[in-house]
Structure formats: structure tokens, C-alpha cells
Design a protein around this nucleic acid. Structure first.
Lengths: 191, 191
DNA sequence: TGCAGCATGTAACCTGTTACATGATTAG
DNA sequence: CTAATCATGTAACAGGTTACATGCTGCA
């Protein structure tokens, strides 16, 4: 059976969070309001429809907590299919398009990896991320060298920040990969 | 008369580009396809409707080039109202919300500033950008210190990248502001 | 002659925003 | 008691994606 696709970044974030522990819609809102995941929409008009779509696709299932309480509360749990779809989504190859258009999804995918995929997949991700991001950094750097003289002060400065940010991302991936491999070899030695 | 609001990032980008020189829809597509502005949608289904909205709001006006040629070509020019709306949009204060949710719009706004607003506005922007971004960086850093021990390897690493990127942005703003002020004082001395 | 690229557009669909609505619970 | 917060939802709207459609131009 084909894996159900995850229809948006928000759905990916929700599925990732539910893979760690069951939560209600309101719990999810609080996460998006108070933690570093502020970039995601915490509006009910986005979250509740997304939950319903995920449920319709069989990726999560909602059950009413405290049935007898007059105020019902939906507790959402990730399903087996949901976990499979999430893992499949994390394990997808890192493409140039991801780097240019979906950097935030890459962030999200990576942040959930440790609990869901093996060490090899993590290393693979970091490697591909470093190489794709590094390549795009070089492309931007070249563009900067070529077009900088013709640009205004602010145009040039903005482009420079763009270049710098991609260099930072590529560096992060290389360093994180180093750290990851060192950590694993130490763990390996102890066995 | 109140300024017409600019309805999306794409419209802002288009208006900014048209403020530099008149272009056709296809020219805009090429910019979005080939330059560092790749993050913007180059699909006709986004660009042509956006152009029509801008025209409807009186911010740009399209005229048919080469009338007698059998293949007409629309050349779009920014109008006085369009330039005013663009300048108003660039000059808006930099808020915390901009930093968290609309960083790319801030990029865009800054990159067009040199040709459209005075030196004071540019310095003001950089100052506010540095201070808001710096504040958010510190908030994220605090969150990292608190929650890092409980996070998985990949969760922690992803959060760390997030923190680093905001530090980089704040540093960029401070350095760019320094450079800007130095540049201006030199120019001032020569007068 | 045929094909790639130029240039513009439309239509269905989908996600997210904004604003509103509702009732329950808890704190003062 | 009442106000804030908990908790869930709906409806209108808007912008972007995807896919399709159309006809012209230049080149091999």
C-alpha cells in the first residue's frame, strides 16, 4: 500500500509532535505558541482542519478523553500508518529544491529523526544536506561576486546575508555530522 | 488618501523590481527563475494574477508594447501610488512578528531601500532589525539551555541551528549598520 | 517542417488567515 | 459573580500550486 502523503508543513509538524506523545489540538496550539516552533500557525482555523485531514487519511486517530465530563477533549494519537508515513517523509532524499524552497521542512524533518530512523539515515541526511546546501552556497557566492558591483548598498548587503546564511547552514551540517560520528564511535567502543 | 496595502510577499517583490525598471510578466518570471530571488514563485499562475491585482489597485499600469506586432507584450510600470505604497511598506517599523514570521519580507524590504528611502530610514531599519533579532536570539538561546538536556540528538542540533541563524542575522545587522555609518561619514567629510 | 522557447493566460483545488461563535472551567 | 482562560470549532476569503491551454517566433 502506498503511503499517504503529508499535505503540508503544519501537518508534518503535528504528526512529528504526536509521534512523541498523544496530544489534543489545544496542546498543539500551546506548543506552537510557546516553544521554538513559533513559526507554525497556532490558529485554530489551521490546526483543527489539519487534524481532521490527518484523521481522514488514517494517519492519526482522535478519541474523546473523559467521556463523562461535560467538556469533551480530543486526544490524538499517531497510527501505525501515520508513523510509517512520517518515517517515509523523513527518509526522503534531500534535494536542491528542498534547500531552496523548503528549508523549514528540512529543519522539521531532521529534528524528529533521532527517535524515528536509524543512525545511517541521519548521517545520510546530514551528508546530503551539507552537500546540497554547500553547492547552493557556492552558486549564490558566485552570483554575489558577479552582481555585487551593480547593486545598491542595501541590495548588496541583503544578498550578502543570504550567502552567509547558507554558508552557516552548510557548516552546521558538517560539524553536526562530525559530532554525530564521533559520538557513535565512542558508543561503539563501549560495546 | 490611504495607501493601498500590498497583498503578499510576491506582490512586494514584483513592485520592488518594477520600481527599478519596467518589466513584463515574463521578465519577472526570468528574474525569479535565474537570480538569487529563487525563493519566489515563478509560476504563471502566481505572477499574472498578482500583476492584475496590483493593476486593479492602481499600483502599477500595464501597456501593450509593439502594438502592431501580432504577439502583444505587456510592459508594466510602477505608478506614483505604487511607489508611495512601496515606500510606505519599506518604512514600516520592524516588529517582533516580522522577525518571527516574516523574515523573508524583511529581507526584501531592506534590499530595495537604498533607491527609495533616505539614509536615516535605512539606519533606523538596521537598528531595529538588530535589536529585535538580537532579542529573539536571546530568547531562543534561553530556550535551548533549558530544553536541550531533554531533547534527542537531532532535536537539539536543529534547535541549535535555529539559534545560530538568528545570531548570524543580528550580527549582520550590526556590522552592516557600522559599515553604513562609516561610509556615510566619509562621504560627509568630502563635502 | 517541426520543435524549443517566448509570452500570456485560465481553472480547479488546497492550505492558511481572519474573524466569529460557543460552552465549560477556574481564579479572584 | 464575573472575567479570563480552556477547548473546540466554522465560514468567508485570499493567495499559491498544479496542470492545462494557446498562439507566436526563431532556428535547425
Amino acid at each position: 500500500m502506498k503511503n499517504q502523503a503529508i499535505d503540508s508543513r503544519l501537518s508534518l509538524a503535528i504528526l512529528g509532535l504526536l509521534s512523541m506523545r498523544p496530544m489534543s489540538g489545544y496542546d498543539l496550539r500551546k506548543v506552537f505558541l510557546t516553544t521554538a516552533m513559533k513559526t507554525f500557525s497556532a490558529s485554530p482555523g489551521a490546526i483543527y482542519p489539519a487534524l481532521r485531514r490527518l484523521e481522514k487519511d488514517g494517519l492519526i486517530s482522535g478519541k474523546v478523553d473523559r467521556k463523562n465530563a461535560l467538556r469533551p477533549r480530543m486526544g490524538f494519537t499517531i497510527s501505525r500508518r501515520g508513523r510509517a508515513a512520517l518515517i517515509a517523509s523523513l527518509a526522503q532524499p534531500v534535494t536542491r529544491e528542498d534547500v531552496v524552497w523548503r528549508m523549514d521542512s528540512l529543519f522539521l524533518r531532521f529534528s524528529f529523526m533521532s527517535d524515528l530512523v536509524g543512525e545511517e539515515k541521519i548521517a545520510e541526511f546530514l551528508h546530503a544536506f551539507a552537500s546540497e546546501t554547500g553547492a547552493y552556497f557556492k552558486e549564490l557566492e558566485g552570483e554575489f561576486r558577479e552582481s555585487a558591483p551593480g547593486l545598491s548598498f542595501s541590495g548588496r548587503a541583503a544578498l550578502k546575508l543570504g550567502v552567509t546564511l547558507f554558508r552557516t547552514k552548510a557548516q552546521w551540517a558538517r560539524r553536526t555530522l562530525d559530532e554525530f560520528e564521533k559520538r557513535n564511535s565512542i558508543k561503539g567502543d563501549r560495546r
